[in-house]
Simulated scan of single mutants.
Amino acid sequence: MQQEVRFDPVQTHRTFEMVCQQIRAKLASGELRPGDKLPAERLLASQLNVSRSAIREALRSLEVAGVVHMVKGIKGGAFIREGTPDRMSEVIQDLIHLGAISLSDLTEARIALYEGMLPMVCERATDADLAALAANVATLEAAIRAGETAQRPHLAYGFYHLLGECSHNTAIIYLNDSLARILLEYTLLLSPQQRVPASDLLASRRRFLKHLQARNAQKAMEELRRHLRRTHRALWEGR
């Protein structure tokens, strides 16, 4: 059974922010974990010595931030969410739309990430990890032969997701996923003619996979760097 989590009374003119702060503190301390249900709105208001409207405002804020999700019904309430890179992707994408991060910044960040990640991948990737990447490349080849252009961007996201998992580092997996998800959104805006040619993409994937299977991080990075820069040019010209 989940142990009861109690909260301290809040006294401030910015009440809902302090409520959010206390809930985040319970997460940081481990008293609250993903999947846990927060106390009912009335009980939270009583424990924190705040109004129920302040509780509702705090829960809305935490829901937007991706910390909790609200479930309706008799067994509903506010539940702590499982961690996902979705919110991270949204924040970075908003910064790009607002002009705070450029596409060049995004490409440089991805290259820097993979430069640090690929030595780790070459050291830690299992045979099953590499087989999953090979299967993705085989699916890409089949899609290209069948003329299924709509599938390519999603296979690309899947490829980078699998590559991140090869690191066996959760922080890297989440960061990699968030950047790859942003790239997917931009790639979907391009027409098939604006993307990197299918034959070039497939050849690059095969070379990269060959270097990875040989555990040669330097050669793999050289190949990936060339591809990412070519992808950047396609995105920039397609804007």
Rank of each mutant, 00 (worst) to 15 (best):
A40T: 10
G99R: 05
K37Y: 03
L162F: 04
I172E: 04
R181Y: 02
L133P: 10
E123W: 10
H168K: 15
H13P: 01
L209K: 12
R110S: 14
L228P: 13
M70T: 09
E141H: 13
H13W: 05
L162H: 07
E123Q: 14
I182N: 05
N169A: 09
R225A: 09
A203C: 14
F79P: 04
G99C: 02
S191H: 07
L190F: 02
I92H: 00
G164Q: 10
T187M: 07
Y114M: 11
T187F: 00
H97I: 11
A25V: 11
A40N: 08
E4A: 13
L201W: 02
N49G: 11
P192T: 04
R24L: 11
M221E: 05
L202D: 07
F159C: 09
M221C: 06
T12H: 04
R152K: 12
R110K: 15
H227A: 14
E222P: 01
M88C: 02
L212P: 15
R124K: 15
Y160H: 14
T107H: 06
N176Q: 12
I96N: 00
E17H: 11
T139V: 02
A54E: 09
Y157K: 11
Y186D: 05
R229A: 10
N136D: 08
R152C: 00
T84M: 02
L179I: 12
V137T: 10
